[in-house]
């Protein structure tokens, strides 16, 4: 794989909404992607530096994302996390992004942009 895409490029190209506090996204690289709505699967399969795509928007995703040190969580289908979840993400340095696209679509677009599994 070529040089990994950085978050800035991904956010721009896919028109993602940033839900957490802004920061220098160009300094963060996405080394791969992992899609699952099951926390146990994500724990088992997602690696540090990956983008994690999920429809889940509840509090538990923040803890899992922080633990795995994923590059960012992309919440699909405009699922809306509540303020407590966003606050907790900011506290723990987890980036939450959002898109109206469903999992299948966003996976496809990322794949075609060159974000493959590492």
């Amino acid at each position: 794989m070529d040089k990994p895409m950085n978050l800035q490029q991904i956010i721009e190209q896919l028109d993602l909404t940033v839900l957490t506090e802004p920061r220098d996204f160009s300094a963060i690289e996405a080394t791969g992607g992992y899609t699952s709505d099951l926390l146990s699967c994500v724990m088992a399969g997602a690696k540090s530096g990956y983008l994690w795509m999920t429809l889940q928007a509840h509090m538990n995703i923040v803890a899992v994302a922080a633990l795995l040190e994923v590059a960012a969580v992309v919440i699909t289908e405009n699922a809306q996390p509540d303020q407590a979840t966003i606050d907790k993400a900011n506290q723990q340095g987890v980036i939450l992004l959002s898109t109206p696209c469903p999992n299948f679509e966003i996976d496809g677009r990322l794949w075609e942009m060159g974000v493959k599994k590492a």
Partner: peptide
């Protein structure tokens, strides 16, 4: 394939 890769390949 994982879901990410499977969806990626099919979408492609």
């Amino acid at each position: 394939c994982g879901m990410f890769e499977g969806c990626g390949r099919l979408h492609e």
